[in-house]
Nucleic acid binder design. Structure first.
Lengths: 225, 225
DNA sequence: CGCGGCTTTGATGTTCATCAAGTAAAGTGG
DNA sequence: CCACTTTACTTGATGAACATCAAAGCCGCG
């Protein structure tokens, strides 16, 4: 695992606007942490002390509601800021975050980031844009999901994984139960509809191995379901 | 209508971090516009050219989906930035906005705001925070609504109007149909459940006049419904 | 080996959307 | 200002979509 920020493949994505000195100062306070699949990165209600950045892996952002039900708010892909949803406005995390796959996370003191925002206008503007984008995406996906019926939601989530893995064939990193939490369905219905899609020869599934056979029809279902 | 930014009651809320010169430059490009109830401020897909700020009134942010159904994303109260959800990341408005009440909106060139973000770090940081807050609120309310049954949603929206008007008695600015769009219910069910709540002596309603009789029970319903 | 969690299928029940139909209110044009 | 049209509001009846319940097989793990 390459641990130098200088050489990080994402350096230019987020920190392109920083000069040498700013960048050096930033890396001083930076830590990189690895989390195993299933581990919890932070819990709803904990103090926000760090700015979190997903270098590698996949995370879920979720909320525990009432009696041990979980509602997944979104999935974080590499290059996403984690918890950015609220880092600049809240004192405590609004959502919990855990690793769906083994993941590497870069951790920077919140104060360091704030200092750079104050000192470097281009960085500030860029960060505003990225944050705005992430929020739009998450809100948009929630609105979209709620308009669809169960078949449409299921197709939507399969297509989402296709986009994450850039392939028609992939291993999903989540259980059927977690799929349900992501798209607001009961586990039983997730399974039922996956079976239907299999019988209709739209997908192949075996455990967590998924393969999309008829992409066009799947997209139709996601669109009009 | 007082048109000077110097004297605006909200000046300190948003522009407290600006020095005299910055503030003067900003006000040069500023316009204030009045919209009548029902008028459309912007449409989904239009170019974002301005930074919009709600001075007075009430707006709805919504999306037209498929065959002339509307989905309301949120309600904007005075002091909220409008369309801030996406101003810094998108070229076009993601949502349409219209006036629920007669409203005054301050319009500032997007470029002016961006310049200040670049030049004034404290302003940038403050804006990041406010934007983050607004996004959290909107996302939170969507998540909350989707967990509730129809009774719970109806109670929730009544309580929201209570908070907007700071009173147990108010005139709602929306039709039954619009309430439905706000909380993802059919118009008929909105009416049915409002009638139930009336029969249960929890609220009094007559047309658009609402009065909360039993606040405690209403809160219970909103919480556990 | 047995326990608990995940997966699967079928049967049953509830909630809510849809359909239908009628009244009231509000805008429109002659 | 009144007939006319349209839009909002209201209630009841029906059906579809989805949640819940139940039961059984499977797998990993202590």
């Amino acid at each position: 695992m390459e641990n130098s920020c200088e050489l990080c493949i994402y350096r230019s994505y987020l920190f392109d606007n920083l000069n040498k000195k700013e960048f050096a100062n930033l890396t001083l306070t930076k830590t990189e942490l690895d989390f195993k699949k299933g581990e919890i990165i932070c819990r709803e209600g904990e103090k926000i002390l760090h700015f979190l950045y997903l270098k590698q892996g996949l995370l879920k952002i979720y909320k525990t509601v009432g009696n041990r039900r979980e509602q997944i708010v979104g999935i974080t892909k590499p290059k996403d800021f984690i918890g950015l949803l609220s880092s600049f406005s809240e004192k405590e995390h609004l959502y919990s975050i855990s690793a769906l796959e083994d993941s590497s996370i870069c951790i920077i003191e919140m104060e360091s980031i704030k200092r750079i925002v104050r000192e470097n206008g281009d960085f500030a503007l860029d960060l505003l844009g990225k944050m705005s984008k992430l929020n739009s995406q998450i809100l948009g996906s929630r609105l979209t999901i709620n308009l669809k019926n169960l078949r449409g939601r299921t197709a939507y989530i399969i297509l989402m994984f296709k986009d994450i893995y850039h392939s028609l064939k992939f291993e999903i990193p989540v259980s059927r139960k977690e799929i349900g939490e992501l798209i607001e369905m009961r586990t039983e219905n997730v399974i039922r509809i996956l079976s239907e899609l299999r019988k209709d020869k739209i997908i192949k599934i075996e455990g967590k191995s998924f393969e999309i056979i008829d992409l066009h029809r799947l997209e139709q279902i996601a669109e009009f379901g």
